[in-house]
């Protein structure tokens, strides 16, 4: 493994030059990312884009082929107990301890965390109508994910990492989860990293969005800037188009010969001259449109 030179950072999560492959398939290709204290980072990308792999590498659960990741400034595979107490992780499919009851699992895990919030656990179990005596193996995927979320939040983490946490939740539970994430980030400065396919969730709580596509980080910007700094420029067929337009991220030619470009600019900066060409149409993009354009 070749570690890139990297200055230790106090950010809860950061990585530089992460590369990883499964066999010949390249999953991550030079991903560099930093999540500042109190940020809520939404990680989006298509299936197989490498989101889960990135999260597992960030937490030290997977050894990367190259690059380095740090949690609270410490290399991920070398986290000590004090750092582990400060972070919580909910995997995409929580499969652990399926042979235990809900209560037994929470008691077992809670014993390891000095800040374990028993009152919160009881309240959430009541609210989501999950019995302590229920066997984890008998729960539905959504209930199991709910239990995993309760477990993660009960540790009162400073860094919360969620791998598609809302995938199996019903709309009510999903909304409550998002509200809880926003509350934690707002009240106690919890840093949250979550991967998702649901762009509306991202818009609701994320302060920063990152998009992975084929192992590369295509976008990484504050949510407020994304809409302002990205737009779609549609040009008629007869417009002469240079090889590369300043700020061009994606180019697509349509059946009628017209061309649409996804453009990015500096915050407050100008759009390229081409936007003023005859017949050119510059339009803002919703987040969903932006991710669809980038992911295609």
């Amino acid at each position: 493994m070749s570690a890139l030179p990297m200055t230790p950072s106090p950010d809860p999560l950061d990585c530089a030059g992460l590369r990883h492959s499964f066999g010949r398939r390249k999953i991550l290709d030079g991903v560099t990312l930093s999540v500042p204290q109190g940020a809520v980072l939404g990680l989006v990308g298509r299936n197989g884009a490498g989101k889960s792999t990135l999260i597992r590498i960030l937490l030290g659960l997977l050894r990367p082929d190259g690059g380095e990741s740090r949690v609270f400034g410490r290399r991920s595979p070398e986290l000590d107990d004090a750092l582990k107490q400060r972070l919580a992780y909910v995997p995409q499919q929580p499969e652990a301890f399926h042979w235990m009851t809900v209560g037994a699992m929470l008691d077992f895990v809670g014993g390891f965390y000095p800040r374990w919030d028993t009152a919160y656990v009881d309240a959430m179990l009541r609210r989501w109508s999950i019995k302590r005596s229920a066997a984890l193996s008998k729960l539905s995927p959504g209930e199991r994910q709910s239990v995993a979320l309760i477990r993660a939040l009960a540790t009162q983490p400073e860094l919360l990492v969620l791998d598609e946490p809302a995938a199996a939740l019903d709309p009510v539970a999903r909304r409550e989860l998002l509200r809880e994430i926003a509350r934690r980030a707002g009240d106690s400065g919890t840093t949250v990293v979550f991967s998702t396919h649901i762009v509306s969730d991202l818009e609701r709580v994320a302060s920063q969005a990152a998009m992975l596509h084929r192992g590369r980080l295509l976008l990484n910007a504050p949510m407020d800037d994304l809409k302002e700094t990205h737009a779609r420029l549609t040009l008629p067929a007869e417009t002469g188009l240079p090889q590369h337009v300043t700020g061009e991220l994606r180019r697509r030619r349509h059946g009628d010969g017209s061309v649409s470009l996804v453009l990015a600019r500096e915050a407050g900066g100008p759009w390229p001259q081409l936007c003023e060409a005859q017949g050119a149409r510059l339009e803002g993009l919703s987040l969903e449109e932006l991710f669809v354009e980038m992911g295609e």
């Binding site: 107990d81 107490q85 995997p91 499969e95 791998d163």
Partner: peptide, 19 residues
């Protein structure tokens, strides 16, 4: 073999000593 399984939990549970 389970990504969201017990080994991930053991890896991240505090209070179990060094590697």
């Amino acid at each position: 073999g389970k990504h969201g399984g017990e080994m991930a939990d053991l890896a991240l549970l505090p209070g179990l000593g060094d590697e």
